[in-house]
């Protein structure tokens, strides 16, 4: 049988390679001078802060946070989870992973929130954002790693960049959604008292959208955690590296310890941010 597609050969591979090469050649210097330093700076700061807290105090703090944000159950669960992580001997790796997540989420919110607000206020801008968000979310996470390495070399920074890109869409989407779904009645009331567009945004729309935005933030944190683990392949440290190194050396025990640590961390982060979301102002109305 002859190949039915043989008579045309779309040079997609070549074109993509050329494009990526061009992007890398053009932006490498820019990325390394202007993007890497702030990301690395925040990462180092967060990591320094988190690792300088004594584990005992850290665990106590998560207990209080869990209790305050959600319930005493969540507080107790946090204590058990972090104690386990410590006793399994991956405390330092956990701190690195947490720092990576915090840093990535920080940039996701910093960039995603304004984009979400912009999307909610302009249909045209949202029309442009939508396909971009779709691409960002459906591209397999591994695909981000290649250009990240090419632009930023290896280590924590390319891992973080890939994570930020991968984890940002929920913040944008749900900020947009939350603001658009505020009951028009409330906006009408604000308008009737002479509020400006900006006053309406900050005094009415944003607080009322807060529960939805927090749901987006929760998703972003979970995505960031999953990506930070994958980023171990390109040299990011932490629990992901533990898993990756364990698999590479066929040390199943080591890989499992890393994996359990990730799951525990994910559960604690999820419960706490969900609790925060329900505490958010505006939530009182949604009964």
């Amino acid at each position: 049988m002859t190949d039915p597609f043989g008579f045309i050969d779309l040079p997609v591979r070549q074109v993509i390679t050329d494009i990526v090469n061009w992007i890398v050649a053009t932006f490498r210097d820019f990325s390394r001078t202007y993007i890497s330093p702030p990301v690395r700076g925040v990462m180092n700061g967060v990591q320094w802060g988190l690792s300088s807290v004594p584990p005992g105090a850290f665990i106590l703090a998560t207990f209080v946070l869990g209790w305050w944000a959600a319930s005493w159950r969540v507080g107790v669960f946090s204590v058990i989870a972090f104690a386990l992580i410590g006793f399994m001997g991956v405390w330092d790796q956990m701190i690195i992973t947490l720092s990576l997540v915090v840093t990535a989420v920080f940039f996701c919110v910093l960039i995603g929130l304004p984009l979400g607000i912009l999307s909610s206020r302009s249909d045209r801008f949202y029309g442009f954002m939508r396909p971009v968000l779709d691409i960002m979310q459906t591209t397999p996470p591994f695909v981000y790693l290649v250009p990240a390495v090419m632009l930023f070399s290896i280590g924590n920074v390319p891992g973080l960049i890939a994570t930020i890109v991968f984890a940002m869409p929920p913040v944008i989407r749900l900020t947009n959604l939350g603001i658009r779904h505020v009951n028009p009645e409330f906006i009408e009331a604000a308008v009737a008292f002479g509020s400006t567009k900006r006053q309406i945004l900050w005094k009415v729309q944003f607080p009322l959208a807060m529960p939805t935005i927090m749901a987006g933030l929760n998703q972003t944190i979970m995505l960031a955690l999953s990506m930070v683990v994958i980023a171990a392949i390109i040299g990011a440290g932490g629990l992901g590296l533990e898993v990756y190194a364990g698999l590479e050396r066929l040390n199943i025990g080591q890989a499992f310890v890393g994996g359990i640590g990730i799951v525990l961390l994910a559960m604690v982060l999820d419960r706490i941010t969900q609790g925060l979301g329900e505490k958010a102002p505006g939530v009182r109305d949604r009964d």
Binding site: E185, A192, L208
Partner: peptide, 14 residues
């Protein structure tokens, strides 16, 4: 110069 009272109150819930 003009203020308004709404039929369905429209109080800000937060």
């Amino acid at each position: 110069n003009m203020s308004m009272v709404f039929q369905h109150f429209a109080l800000l819930p937060h």
